[in-house]
Design a protein around this nucleic acid. Sequence first.
DNA 1: ATTCTCTGTTCTCCATATCGAACATATGTT
DNA 2: AACATATGTTCGATATGGAGAACAGAGAAT
Lengths: 255, 255
Amino acid sequence: MSTSGFKRVPAIEKCFAILRLLTKSKAAMGITGISRALRYNKSTVFNIVHTLSDLGILEQMPDNKFNLGTDLYLLSRAAGKSSELIQIVHPYLEEINKKTKLSAFLGIRSGMRAVILDKVDSAFDIKISSEVGMRLPLLGGAGGRALLSQLPDREIERILAKEELPKFTPQSCVDKKRYLMMIRKAREERIAFDDEEYIEGIYAFAVPFRTGRQNLQTALWAVGLKRQVPKEMVQQFSELLKKMASGIEARFQLR
Amino acid sequence: MSTSGFKRVPAIEKCFAILRLLTKSKAAMGITGISRALRYNKSTVFNIVHTLSDLGILEQMPDNKFNLGTDLYLLSRAAGKSSELIQIVHPYLEEINKKTKLSAFLGIRSGMRAVILDKVDSAFDIKISSEVGMRLPLLGGAGGRALLSQLPDREIERILAKEELPKFTPQSCVDKKRYLMMIRKAREERIAFDDEEYIEGIYAFAVPFRTGRQNLQTALWAVGLKRQVPKEMVQQFSELLKKMASGIEARFQLR
DNA sequence: ATTCTCTGTTCTCCATATCGAACATATGTT
DNA sequence: AACATATGTTCGATATGGAGAACAGAGAAT
């Protein structure tokens, strides 16, 4: 029995499945609701949620429904502070924002989503409306293509076979063969561009980087209004993002 | 076997004990370090941390040490959004801040600490350096006394018998009998004041409120420079905080 | 008032997680 | 290089948690 992939403590897996369910749920949920949604036994859910309630991780309402609790909130503020990925990358996002005046993002792939882990923009900037925690479509912009470019061809082809390419704007590419070529190009050139394909009027650069961890696709990307990115700055911004990605990779490999 | 106080799923209890330990730890920790700190069996810790690592709740470093992970961070952002206590109280903190220009806080008691769960101040305000997540000494200011005032006398007396009263400033009260009277006065008048007792130059008001939940002491408090609080405004600010606390209590009792 | 439906709670058996011991690997010391 | 120490990993016995069934209580429908 090896350590890879095997969930050794099912109670903990169930516990976080419940927490994630309550995260997605807009309302507090009861024991039967949780049991049905996750197909767990009611007595199992009963014991887990009461344990979590005692620990302050969940709050129990008077109507016997459960919501996320304040101790989870406090626990998680520490998690953001101590995540090595966020800590290492954050200063690079700040530098990208400072030099380009674009919003800078750190994201990872999660299934068919690009999840934003961190973001830097300034008080003076035009704010891009993606926030930390948001799950953007993977097949939707430069960030997604940069993340995809880190997958093997076989996996990319499997995804493209299964999913339709959404048409977000008139510029969106919906031809799968062409899309695959764009992902490969992103891999070769180590950068992806989004010229109004996901949101009209918006331009984005995204650069994948490696952290040495298996099964983790990471990218950083810069997003702004197209008019913030004159043609003559594209090359310069591209070089900057690649330089930042190289710096990040060096940080992960010095150990 | 009743639901009260009994930890039904020990693996979950151990799991959060590990997460809290890593929160407090300034560095990543290994299996043996966690095992020693919490007096758990190494194979138990081994299984739990690898399960958490697979779930993204912990990150495993190349040197086999574990740190808090990005999924915990993302989970937590939702927790702050859905905590009923924080959601109900937040608009009242905003109103306090707007009308008094003081920094407004929501806090709860945790052992001998006052833990800040939420805070509102404005761009224009002089910033008070307490942040969300901070654990302030319970015997240290208006907020702590407001929280203490919700405990039974016996518990307060037990705490005062056991702990020394710290002298933060020349104005700090270190006489236990007098301190007990101050807590009782806070209970009777439903407000506590801090006139440079915890930090010199700082004035604070704190008002306890009830949420209907057992074993939870909650208070809201407003803090600023003493010169922001002219004598003629003390009564007015006091009435405002009491009014906010009454509004909060009404919200918790309409159900 | 009675019955029905739904949710929460309790109890018990058995499949399994925890613990202790032993082993494997890495690092430090001589 | 050899040895000592520390940490991580594995295995099996046993104590125990999860699941299923039954029960209790609350609310809705008649």
